[in-house]
Simulated scan of single mutants.
Amino acid sequence: MTTAAAAYLDLLGVHRSPPDRALLDRIVTAHNATIPFENLDPFTGVDPPTTSDGIAAKLVHARRGGWCFEHNRLLHDVLADLGYRVTPLVGRVRLGLAPADAPASRTHRFTLVDTIEGRFTVDAGFGSTVPTTALQLVAGPEQPTPQATYRYARVDHGGWVLQRRGSGGWADQYVFDLVPVPDVDFAMGSWYLAHHPGSHFRTGLVAARTTPRRRTTLDGTRLTVRTADGTAQRHDLTSPARVRDALEEHLGIDTGGVAGLEERLREVYFR
């Protein structure tokens, strides 16, 4: 096991064991509980890292989070180091689209994992509705997690769609196929979302962290803490200082090295 993988497991509080489904679930659950989802880099005009070393330096050693290109590159690399057979995949995000079948870009990274117990997907970078365990890649069966229930369905041309059951019924999260994706495509997707004028990662602040007991999300200036029983507490943050405090205290993000954060918050939310 590499030093980087050992540091990652130490951060998560997970002990190494044979590469099976049980370890996979422990890692995914602990990753989502420990390393937050956040877009502070693109929000403040900084290109997020795309290399393994750069991502580990930020997410493992600097008490920061990131988006899917960072979380799922880190998770993919560690799982490979632990002996899992992994395949990097990309999806087209459907969540929030209007209409629901509108065209979407291939900008969500996640990982396919083959084990002796079957084929699974793992995802640590889908923000406020991320699955917090591995999901078996089979069409139809409902797969409950502590926060929500998911299922896979088949779509045209041999593709798949991940669906999540919410208060309004089943909603598509993203569609994908099983063609392995090279690093250059993820680097291009990261650059696109960090620079395109229409990217919501540039124009608004989002952050999330999900433990087995609660899911904490920050959407602009609205902080929501939702417990496993569905109870939600919402707080409207009234100043850049309160937003920074929420990022630090509720999401576990060290904002000290994020240059220009308060100025950017004032520009977007407190003019």
Rank of each mutant, 00 (worst) to 15 (best):
H15A: 15
N32D: 10
R164T: 04
R64A: 01
I55C: 03
R92T: 09
D10H: 13
F201V: 03
T224W: 04
D25M: 08
L178D: 14
P36Y: 00
G54I: 08
Y152L: 14
T2A: 08
A62M: 02
T238I: 07
M1G: 12
P103I: 15
N39C: 09
Q143S: 05
L193K: 06
D229V: 05
Q147Y: 02
H157N: 15
G204A: 12
S199F: 12
F120L: 08
S17M: 06
W191T: 12
A124K: 03
T115D: 07
R94D: 02
D53P: 00
A134I: 09
T203W: 01
H196I: 01
T149D: 10
Y192P: 01
Q163S: 07
L82P: 07
D183I: 12
T255F: 08
K58R: 14
Y84W: 10
R202T: 08
G45Q: 04
A228L: 06
G65I: 10
V225Y: 07
R73S: 13
V60W: 00
L135K: 05
E249Q: 11
F37L: 06
L97V: 04
L162P: 01
F186C: 07
A5Q: 04
A208V: 07
G65W: 03
A187Y: 02
T216E: 02
G83N: 10
P18D: 05
G127Y: 06
M1R: 13
V184Y: 11
G13D: 04
A194G: 14
L9R: 05
V175P: 00
H195I: 08
L59A: 03
Y269E: 05
G54W: 07
G166K: 13
S199V: 13
T3D: 15
D177P: 03
L97R: 13
A134L: 13
T2D: 12
V113D: 09
P19W: 11
T133D: 03
D114M: 03
A30N: 05
L12K: 04
V86C: 10
E117H: 15
R214W: 00
V175N: 02
G257L: 09
A153S: 11
R234N: 10
R222L: 15
